[in-house]
Design a protein around this nucleic acid. Structure first.
Lengths: 341, 341
DNA sequence: TGGCGCCGGTGAAACGTTTCATATCAAACG
DNA sequence: CGTTTGATATGAAACGTTTCACCGGCGCCA
């Protein structure tokens, strides 16, 4: 293999210095583009570096300097396909700024989240962007505040002292619900994720706001829909009620598939037998027959901004107070909702 | 914020030693569970660690020890939704083994890939799992061999001296093509990605094998389909041919959406006007109307095995020769293919 | 020509851990 | 009782870089 036995004895700054006939400090100054080094020396050192294939050891660099140029991103579950866009853009921005992305799953557990923050501190990670699963968990909140590096929250809005990027889920949910109301729907079911976290709570809030002064039927409000199977099960249950809903607003992220599977299993036609709005847009929503009305927002932009804000904060260019960016959501009206008498 | 000005002066091993009234070396031995520490000393040190909230600095640890417990994963593009499953499982296995995943996009460029390997060396990353965009690029091949850490290839099979996990795309493509042939199709279009890399080449190979002794019509063979827009464009072009194909095998990963968009734009019905097979399975394929016949393989298992094999290699538990794991593909027959006279 | 300031370069300390040779001490043994 | 042995703990070196106090020599001015 090459990497196991006969390690070619990594070349270090000392070897370069010896080869170039200068002191190690001088090589370091060349590497870091210090002005106080004369041209002949600089090029001699550069030549030695090139010839010997020297590569800086960033562990040693971090050891001395402090910064690791590592940024951690932690979310509940990577296989939420839409989140890939967030990560992709965040990684791009960070990479172009010389940072490396470190990815970790929180598995939706406060304990894991606390462990993660500790691990980031131990690794001297320069910055963290993360969701958190339970906004009122004191341990996690303490850990966030005690973190020795800047933390940016993804889609969480309850800690004004931290930077955060969110999508306007309340407005999205309100618009979706109004859309259904205008079409004459009164029995509207809502599927959301964990209401311990902002997105689901905001969606419920927007839902209630649109319904007011009427209040939602408790039977039609289902939370803790976290997996595709949950969505399948809840949809089955909803449509088996004595008085089933005339419309389903499947607001939990990427749960449309589970819902559609259930409707298919029940032999119900979307748009005909039950109207449908998805809380997040996807190719599936776009290309399904009929195409499914959905709430859309720009996850790539969200990732881009998250990375940018975190970079500013790490560089100390940000104000003392936490900054909030709330991205707009839009309702993409398609053909999955029918007017009812 | 807490992290900016008044850093609470991180507690180090020396402070713990002083508090416990022992030498730093002793604290280190307690931390690393060395047997040569008496119980009273051990518990005294443990108490001091707990009380002071000491946390090991893993940068310093790596500095001295060598291992960073970092594993890099690099693929072309994260927003290939199916790959999230791979990453998710790989991350889980690695995390449970005490490693942290470092994620990077290669942007399908050999230069970036070479830079990435150098950066991994500089960071003293313990292992790398990666795709590579051009299997015959000498620079990348040299870099792979010169890498000072184990490298595992994802879905690449051309370097027998390296570990690798692949899916049997050739068999999948062959099965899909036979399926279409049996239904009477003769003009079958194939959309694949970059044939500089194994998956696309294997798919073409399986396609040819099924067709033999007939040879594919060059007009119906489209490679370099890398984005959804490419798939859209190529599908439009194919169906506008004087003699359009009766079936499309959209074998490039996650390109089904683009293809379906084009067919919809042309007003062509899947199954009726043109048969369709997708080279990778997805919710879209499963739930589309009609459901789309697709080639499936277990990406989660692929990620799991990749991580496991890399862990074994890093621990030196693997044989000297590169190991290959080829996951089977299955053809999930749905209703997107019609028999033709 | 001698003193001074300045430029370019040097060498060592420091970062926080692990490890290794060494010191200490009690028990065991002749 | 003196010596060996074995078990624990100690202190310093080492990891590879950056930085900083310092030094030699050069040109400039008196």
């Amino acid at each position: 293999m090459g990497w196991e036995a006969s390690l070619p004895e990594r070349v270090k700054i000392r070897d370069v210095a010896r080869a170039a006939g200068v002191a190690v400090g001088t090589v370091s100054r060349v590497l870091n583009d210090h002005p106080t080094v004369t041209e002949p020396v600089r090029s001699r050192v550069r030549a030695a570096i090139a010839e010997m294939g020297y590569e800086r050891d960033s562990v040693a660099q971090s050891m001395r300097g402090g910064s690791t140029h590592l940024v951690a991103c932690a979310i509940r579950d990577f296989d939420i396909p839409r989140f890939a866009l967030f990560i992709k853009e965040a990684e791009r921005v960070l990479r172009e700024a010389g940072y490396t992305l470190l990815l970790s799953s929180t598995t939706n557990s406060p304990e894991v989240e606390m462990a993660l923050l500790r691990a980031c501190a131990a690794r001297r990670v320069d910055g963290v962007m993360t969701t958190i699963s339970d906004e009122s968990h004191p341990g996690v909140i303490d850990a966030l505040h005690a973190a020795p590096m800047p933390v940016l929250l993804i889609d969480r809005d309850h800690l004004p002292e931290l930077d955060r990027v969110t999508a306007d889920h309340a407005a999205g949910a309100e618009a979706a619900t109004r859309h259904l109301l205008q079409l004459g729907h009164r029995r509207i079911a809502l599927l959301v994720g964990d209401t311990k976290a902002a997105p689901s709570r905001s969606r419920v809030e927007g839902f209630r706001r649109a319904l007011a002064p009427a209040v939602p039927d408790a039977h039609l409000l289902r939370d803790r829909v976290l997996t595709s199977e949950d969505a399948f099960r809840e949809t089955m249950a909803l449509m088996s009620l004595a008085e089933p809903p005339t419309a389903i607003f499947v607001a939990a992220m990427d749960m449309l598939g589970g819902c559609l599977r259930a409707l298919r299993a029940l032999g119900l036609r979307v748009g005909e037998d039950v109207s449908l709005v998805s809380g997040s847009d996807s190719e599936l929503a776009e290309l399904y027959a009929p195409p499914v009305t959905a709430i859309a927002w720009d996850l790539a932009e969200m990732g881009r901004h998250a990375a940018t804000m975190l970079l500013e904060r790490m560089r100390g260019e940000a104000p003392d107070t936490g900054r909030a960016l709330k991205l707009p959501t839009t309702l993409v009206v398609r053909q999955s909702c029918r007017a009812i008498p």
